[in-house]
Write a protein that binds this DNA or RNA. Structure first.
Length: 471
RNA sequence: GGCCCGUUCGUCUAUCGGUUAGGACACCAGGUUUUCAACCUGGGAAGAGGGGUUCAACUCCCCUACGGGCUGCCA
C-alpha cells in the first residue's frame, strides 16, 4: 500500500462475469466492496467481465443487476462492459509489445499441449516456455499469434495483501501470460488490470481464487508503470459441509434467497458477518456496518453457510423494520415468488397487524402464515383443530359474547374486561375462552393474541366472524 | 506433481504472548404465557496432531494431517 493510494478517495469495484445468476459468494464480495467504499465516502463501481463471448449473456447481466439491487447495493455510474473496452486493452498489449515487455508467440495450442505432455512424461510440471520469447522478429511466420507478457523468470513477486498478509510468489512458477488472444481479443488477465487502472480502482477486494493471479497482474502494473492497487483477497464461502459451495447445497443464487423470503437487510447483516467480525457485533444496521467494516476484520479461512443463523438474523431485522417498509418488501416477495398480490383491504389490515406479527416471524412466508387471520375473508374456514375448538358449548359462549362486544369500547382494556368477565361467568379459565375465539377469528388454533386480532380486525368484522362461527 | 492459502465450541467468530479462552446461532433444561411464536434464566460445547522459541503460546517458528485455490487463447 502506497502513500498515494492511502490518500486518494477510495474506489472499489465488483466485477462479475455474466455467465449465470449472481452467486451468493459474489453477492458477499460485492457487499464487502460496497461497504468499504460507502463507509469511507468512496466510490463503488460495477464492471461486467464479458470478454468471454461464448459464455456471456445479457440475461445473466440482468440477473446480476437484479440481485445487487435486491441486496440494496447501488453502484456509481453505469455498469461498465469490459468487452466494450477491448480496443483499449489491445492498445495496451501493443504498447507492451513496443516496449519489449511483451512478445508475439506463434505456438499453436497443440504445441503447447505437447509441451505439457512431454513435461508430465518426464515427471515434472514446468510452466510453458514459449520458443518465441527470444526469437528474432525477422523469423516470425505469417501465422496467427498471441501476445504474451514477457514475465521475469527469476526473482519473486510480492503481493502485499490486506487479508492474506505478505504473499511471496517465485517468478519461475509463473508463465508468460497471454494478454491478447490470436483473434485479437484481450484475456481477462490483461483486461482486469487495464480496467482497474483506467477506472481508478484503489482497492481490489475479490475472492482468494485470484490470489495467485495477483502476482501476474502485478507484473502488468509494473511493466506499464501503473500503481498497484491495494489487494484484499477474501476467502470463498463454503456449503454447510465445508465443501465448496455448489448447486447440491441448495440455493447458490442470491435471488433464490429473495424467493425464500429472507429480508434484504437481514441478508446484508448475515453476509457481512460471514467471515468478518468486529468484536461481538452480531445484529447491526447497514449504517452501522458501514461504520464498522474494515478489511482487517476479514478472516483468512473460508466460512460455511448457516441457514439457521441467516434465519435468526433476518428475524431480528424483521422485528426492527418499519411497518410500511416491511409491507412494501413483502409485496416484492409476493411478486418474485409467484404469489398473488394483496388486495387493498388486505394491505390495510396487514399494515395494521404488522406490530403484532413482525417480531413473531423470521421470513416472509412465516409472516404471511402468522397474518392468516388478517388476510382471510369471511366466511373463515376453520381447520381441523379449530373445528374441535368450536363445539356446541363453545359456540354458545361466542353467541353470548356478541351483544356485549357490540356495545364495547374497542380498546384493549375494555375488551380485556369483557372477556375476563365472560370467562368468570362461565366458570372457565381464560384459555378455554380464547380457544374458540381463535378458531372463530382465524380459523386456526395458533394465532397472535386474541386482543390483537380483535383490534386489528375491528369491531364489525370481529362480531361478524363470531356470528359466522356461532351459527 | 509444483506453487499459494487456510485449520479456536456442531456453525459464524473474539483474543492480536499472560483471560476461569468471550459472544452469537444451534442444541438441552427451566421460567413466563392465552395457543403458536417470541421472550427471560441456566447448561453442555473449542485452540487439528507433533516438535520447537519463551519465565509464559490459541497467539511466533518448523513438520505432519486435513481442507481450499492456482497451475487455460475461462473469468
Amino acid at each position: 500500500m502506497t502513500e498515494a493510494n492511502r490518500q486518494r478517495q477510495v474506489v472499489t469495484r465488483f466485477a462479475p462475469s455474466p455467465t449465470g445468476y449472481l452467486h451468493i459468494g459474489g453477492g458477499r464480495t460485492a457487499l464487502f466492496n460496497w461497504l468499504y467504499a460507502r463507509g469511507r465516502g468512496g466510490k463503488f463501481l460495477l464492471r461486467i467481465e464479458d470478454t468471454d463471448r461464448e459464455r456471456s449473456t445479457p440475461e445473466a447481466t440482468a440477473a446480476i443487476l437484479r440481485g445487487l439491487t435486491w441486496l440494496g447495493l447501488d453502484w456509481d455510474g453505469a455498469a461498465v462492459s469490459q468487452f466494450e473496452q477491448r480496443h483499449r486493452h489491445a492498445e495496451v498489449a501493443h504498447r507492451m509489445l513496443a516496449r519489449g515487455t511483451a512478445y508475439k508467440c506463434f505456438s499453436t495450442q497443440e504445441e503447447i499441449a505437447a509441451f505439457r505432455a512431454a513435461a508430465e512424461a518426464r515427471g515434472s510440471y514446468a510452466v510453458f516456455q514459449s520458443p518465441w520469447r527470444d526469437a528474432d522478429p525477422a523469423t516470425h511466420p505469417d501465422a496467427p499469434y498471441v501476445i504474451r507478457m514477457m514475465a521475469p523468470r527469476t526473482g519473486e513477486t510480492v503481493i502485499d495483501d490486506t487479508v492474506q498478509g505478505r504473499v511471496v510468489i517465485q517468478n519461475d512458477t509463473l508463465d508468460d501470460m497471454i494478454c491478447l488472444r490470436s483473434d485479437g481479443t484481450p484475456t481477462y488477465m490483461l483486461a482486469v488490470v487495464v480496467d482497474d487502472h483506467d477506472m481508478g480502482v484503489t482497492h481490489v477486494i475479490r475472492g482468494d481464487d485470484h490470489l495467485n493471479n495477483a502476482a501476474r497482474q502485478t507484473m502488468v502494473y509494473t511493466t506499464m508503470g501503473w500503481e498497484v492497487p491495494i489487494w484484499a483477497h477474501i476467502p470463498l464461502i463454503h456449503g454447510p459441509d465445508g465443501k465448496k459451495l455448489s448447486k447440491r447445497h441448495g440455493a447458490v443464487g442470491i435471488e433464490e434467497y429473495q424467493v425464500m423470503g429472507y429480508l434484504a437487510a437481514g441478508m446484508r447483516n448475515y453476509l457481512t458477518r460471514l467471515g468478518w467480525a468486529h468484536l461481538d457485533a452480531e445484529i447491526f444496521t447497514t449504517e452501522q456496518a458501514m461504520q464498522m467494516f474494515d478489511l482487517g476484520g476479514i478472516g483468512r479461512a473460508p466460512a460455511r453457510l448457516d441457514f439457521k443463523k441467516l434465519e435468526n438474523t433476518c428475524g431480528h431485522h424483521m422485528a426492527m423494520a418499519d411497518d410500511a417498509a416491511l409491507l412494501h418488501e413483502l409485496r416484492g416477495f409476493l411478486a418474485v415468488s409467484g404469489r398473488a398480490d394483496l388486495t387493498l383491504r388486505q394491505a390495510e389490515l396487514m399494515l395494521a397487524a404488522m406490530y403484532c406479527l413482525k417480531d413473531r416471524a423470521k421470513t416472509f412466508p412465516e409472516l404471511l402464515d402468522k397474518a392468516e387471520f388478517a388476510l382471510a375473508s369471511r366466511p373463515v374456514v376453520p381447520d381441523e383443530a379449530a373445528v374441535k375448538a368450536l363445539d356446541s358449548v363453545s359456540r354458545g359462549i361466542l353467541k353470548s359474547l356478541t351483544p356485549q362486544l357490540r356495545n364495547a369500547l374497542w380498546t384493549k382494556p375494555a375488551l380485556e374486561a369483557i372477556l375476563n368477565a365472560a370467562a368468570a361467568t362461565q366458570g372457565i379459565g381464560f384459555g378455554k375462552l380464547a380457544a374458540p375465539l381463535r378458531a372463530a377469528l382465524a380459523g386456526r388454533t395458533a394465532t397472535p393474541s386474541v386482543y390483537d386480532m380483535m383490534l386489528v380486525l375491528g369491531q364489525d368484522e370481529t362480531i361478524a366472524r363470531l356470528e359466522d362461527a356461532a351459527a
